[in-house]
Design a protein around this nucleic acid. Structure first.
Lengths: 229, 229
DNA sequence: AAGTGGTCTAGACCACCCT
DNA sequence: GGGTGGTCTAGACCACTTT
């Protein structure tokens, strides 16, 4: 791990314990504290600043930002975008199941009758705040033993490392919904907080759809960023 | 304008004339060429690299990137997606205004003090059902007489036909919100119906942002389709 | 005047790729 | 070994705010 990443990680944790408006140590102080140069501290601050977690005011200081509605997110992958935002990504597995595919699942994944699927429900955190519920569905045949893996990180990474399957997100459907009782409880939000529901499919290079995920993002903390990265 | 921005701008233009796979000058060469230090060149390269326009390979060099699939993710335009759904698209103009740009508008459109903007609010229908409210903002200087045009169809088409300006959607931010009283009334929905808010910017080929639109879609009837097109 | 965020330098050094 | 991208330094300087 390079130096600025250590600084970033540490700063990220510190900020999480502070309140909006609180002032951070000065750049010089941070540089001395971490035994690192001005430029390296700034590189870490830049990441936090561009993800709107802090605000630098020339001549005044650096402050913890108000948590605005404009947090950042890409359609790429939860884990990578959390990293980019200087937050730690973590997933808590809510449920895992191996079961026969119903009609709907068979259609979505292009499976034959009698095929089995794996379902994985996960609650995803950014710095200990629940931000998203992921419900994934995959063909069991293609990923034997998947449920034995550690799924607290990136699902795509596990698929790549263990099964050498590289997925790309083909198409996503985004809608606005109110959370169910259960989901609201998991995300720790009121029932009236609108959420973003993203239904996405992962396909291999040969176009076969091998993953279907329904994600529910907290609407008050999340914004999807779509476009040229 | 700071130095790295000049370098970035110049590099951006250069890259546009090159082909994928072509090699850029080395960092040292660029530094000498622009009369600037290594770090400053790198800062510009970092921007291009994180937006996937170039790829740096340690020990080899820096190369123009292949346009990737994820880069091309776009939101379909309202008019075209209505067409695809077999519905007729129509827009009712709610308000049009020519007024001085406030700070926020100036920042978004990159305008100087004293510049004027055109705002256009439209209610968009699919088969006589109100589906979306669009609030657009454009620099007045660039589009003289825009308000005299028929705006019941596609705004982008008008801009193209009348001003020969071809816009591409640069980046869109999607969030889930509840509608205001006014917006709920316009869309004929209860206040508790979650909506999709899409903030998008249109830019010309030379990267200038000349349009900013906030769209509010009925969440119960509208789904955004994001995919490789 | 002193202190702050932000830019920039000139160069060292590392990891890596090519002979 | 020589060239490349990438990280980092120690400090200078600028723009700005506060005292």
């Amino acid at each position: 791990m390079v130096k600025y990443e250590s600084v970033l990680k540490d700063l990220s944790v510190s900020i999480a314990t502070m309140r909006p408006g609180d002032q951070l140590p000065t750049e010089r102080q941070l540089a001395a504290q971490y035994g690192v140069s001005n430029m390296t501290v700034r590189r870490a601050l830049d990441v936090l600043s561009s993800s709107k977690r802090i605000v630098g005011i020339r001549g005044r200081g650096t402050f913890v930002a108000q948590p605005t509605v404009t947090k950042q997110m890409t359609l790429a992958s939860f884990t990578s975008s959390m990293l980019e935002a200087g937050m730690t990504a973590r997933a808590q597995v809510l449920a895992m199941e191996l079961k026969p595919a119903d009609d709907k699942a068979r259609e979505m994944l292009g499976l034959d009758e009698g095929a089995q699927i794996i379902t994985i429900d996960r609650l995803r955190f950014g710095d200990d705040t629940p931000l998203c519920i992921d419900r994934s569905m995959l063909p069991a045949e293609r990923f034997p033993g998947l449920l034995g893996n550690d799924l607290s990180g990136s699902l795509y990474e596990v698929l790549y490392r263990r099964y050498n399957v590289e997925l790309s997100r083909a198409e996503s459907r985004v809608s606005a919904v109110l959370p169910s009782h259960e989901d609201a409880q998991l995300l720790r939000i009121p029932l009236t907080t609108p959420c973003l529901r993203v239904i996405s499919q992962g396909s291999t290079i040969d176009e076969a759809v091998v993953e279907n995920t329904v994600s529910l993002y907290r609407g008050d903390l999340y914004e999807l960023l779509i476009g040229r990265n």
